[in-house]
Design a protein around this nucleic acid. Structure first.
Length: 583
DNA sequence: GTAGGGTTAG
């Protein structure tokens, strides 16, 4: 028995008319299907459900089911769709590829990628559409590696990939910045003669090369495209903006026939990235149809250039101008507020989110977790985290970071083990960075810390970055194991990275180990990175002062004065705070 | 009146 409860009360026109056609099944189903295609959707669904419950089976059941699934899926009738799936199984239509494809589309659009995948696995012969649907499902929900693995499975299967398969894979390569695979796919596209005659393929290639930092290749693809649409132009302007080629971007913009809002937003982004906020404002005030994104781009620019105060002022301006605030506006301004540590403002944005119905969106909720934990309000952060309806990895990472930042290693580790139990989530490089950070400045046994590091590399295949090694260095140095820490730097090939040595210097300084600090500072001098900031000078000067070697202290102060890296009032305290938190 | 794809803000 199927049960359909629509969102609104409807008349039963269709059910009565269809009832009168006793015996003429075909015509009633034709009525239903044509109604589904045009208007009167809800009535048609009611009629269809009644027909099915009456045991009235359409001749072309799979076609009718495809229609019903599409329409009820589009209208958000999730329960009805699942029941239709049951009907399909019960009446033995599951092995029909096009019907399964319809069901897959429903599952992936209703956030049940796992159900879509399960369905795919049960299909006797999936076609290229089944494959594309699943690959794009993974790519669109941000599970890029899994999407790419599936694409590679498709390549190995007996199904032949088409343009749609390649565009989905290229999108994943772009976001993961895997240019070599992107280039492989490009050559395959050329070999198959697909690079001409399909604008979307060209657009994806421009975007992929642009995101991978290969500006020249992006331009080359753009130049060779026979047909260009607005997206092609926007993609090339975006590539210029991303790769800091403001002049080139402007040049393309002036050639462009019909710029749209996205084009102008890209230009705003290009100016903001080169910290030319005045030009960005100018575009915002002159462009034809500014939207929330146009404003958000400037807001993001302020946050990224560490002008949090300006960001909050700009947000106020957005509000007073009546700009529609979306989930991104809220999450960006929350990042600014978190940096400024102003809880009352954070609360205002929280209630703003509640009012707009955006508070449970992943970006907003994660930003709230981050803001509350940066303001030391862990209980509030926890409340946000546990009440989130769908938690993605960003939310988990934000909460682990919250514990790490507040020095609660027990809770951080507990949450990490809970994350490991999650079926569809996998810790990433950021997760381990937060976890190792908490190990490095709390009383976590060294074996456990090393265990996490090895787990990251061996179990999850994550290549350690210099930041991961810095945490390990701090953890070792904290236990006085400066020379083992030094070995870590060299073992992982970060010997030429000033960041790693600075981390070690910080560790030496915390342990008041002057001898080791002198050696490490010497290394930084050799690397030629000593003039980058006053950090090395300040650490050494403080360390000499601690050991009461005043001659060296005044010597360093003299060098600092000469080089113009004068220590500002209070900056030493800030430095120490930074060393203490170091996340 | 059958199913699948791309660009911007995070």
């Amino acid at each position: 028995m199927l049960r359909f409860v629509s969102h609104k009360v409807t008349s039963r026109v269709y059910s009565t008319t269809t009832r009168s056609h006793v015996g003429s099944t075909a015509s009633s189903w034709t009525t239903v299907v044509s109604a589904l295609a045009r208007s009167g959707v809800i009535d048609a669904l009611h009629a269809a459900v009644e027909l099915l419950n009456d045991g009235d089976k359409p001749d072309d059941t799979s076609s009718v089911m495809v229609h019903l699934l599409r329409v009820s899926g589009n209208h958000g009738y999730v329960s009805l769709c699942r029941q239709l799936h049951g009907y399909v199984v019960k009446h033995g239509y599951v092995s029909e590829t096009r019907l399964s494809n319809s069901l897959m589309r429903f599952y992936k659009t209703s956030d049940s990628l796992e159900d879509a995948h399960r369905l795919f696995d049960e299909m006797p012969d999936p076609d290229v559409i089944s494959w594309n649907s699943l690959v794009s499902g993974y790519v669109q929900s941000g599970r890029l590696q899994e999407g790419l693995c599936l694409f590679l499975d498709l390549e190995r299967s007996n199904v032949f990939p088409n343009e749609f398969s390649f565009t989905a894979a290229l999108a994943a390569c772009a976001r993961l910045k895997i240019s070599w695979l992107g280039a492989c796919i490009h050559s395959k596209i050329v070999k198959l003669g697909m690079e001409k005659g399909n604008v979307v393929v060209g657009n994806c290639l421009i975007d992929m090369y642009g995101k991978c930092g290969s500006m020249d290749d992006a331009v080359l693809v753009f130049r060779h495209m026979e047909e260009k649409d607005t997206v092609s132009w926007n993609a090339i302007v975006a590539s210029c903006s991303r790769n800091r080629k403001l002049e080139l971007g402007l040049w393309f913009f002036h050639q462009m026939p019909n710029p749209d809002t996205v084009t102008y937003n890209e230009l705003i982004d290009a100016f903001v990235k080169s910290e030319d906020f005045n030009s960005a404002f100018q575009i915002l005030s002159c462009m034809p149809n500014p939207n929330s994104s146009s404003w958000n781009t400037i807001l993001t620019g302020y946050v990224n250039s560490e002008q949090s105060r300006e960001a909050t002022l700009f947000f106020t301006k957005m509000h007073s101008y009546g700009v529609r605030l979306d989930e991104y506006s809220l999450s960006i301004v929350l990042a600014a507020i978190a940096a400024l540590v102003v809880v009352p403002w954070g609360r205002v944005i929280h209630s703003c989110g509640l009012k707009l119905g955006l508070d449970s969106r992943v970006v907003v909720a994660s930003a709230l977790i981050d803001m509350y934990s940066k303001c030391g309000m862990l209980k509030q952060a926890e409340l946000m985290f546990w009440t989130m309806p769908r938690k993605n990895l960003i939310a988990w990472n934000a909460m682990i970071y919250g514990y790490a930042r507040n020095g609660d290693s027990t809770e951080a580790i507990k949450l990490f083990s809970q994350l490991k139990q999650e079926r569809f989530l996998k810790p990433d490089g950021i997760t381990f960075l937060n976890l190792l950070a908490v190990c490095s400045h709390c009383e976590v046994p060294m074996e456990l810390t090393l265990g996490y590091f090895e787990m990251m590399v061996n179990e999850y295949g994550i290549k350690p970055r210099v930041e991961h090694c810095c945490s390990l260095i701090r953890a070792m140095a904290r236990r006085g194991d400066i020379w083992q820490a030094k070995k870590v730097i060299q073992e992982f090939g970060f010997g030429f990275d000033g960041v790693a040595w600075r981390a070690l210097l910080g560790a030496c300084s915390a342990g008041k180990d002057l001898k080791a600090a002198k050696a490490v500072a010497g290394k930084i001098v050799v690397l030629g990175e000593v003039d980058e900031d006053e950090y090395v000078y300040i650490v050494m000067s403080n360390l000499y002062a601690y050991h009461e070697i005043w001659r060296e202290v005044s010597q360093i102060r003299k060098i600092m004065r000469e080089k113009g890296v004068e220590k500002e009032v209070g900056s030493s305290w800030i430095q120490e705070q930074n060393v203490a938190i170091q996340l």
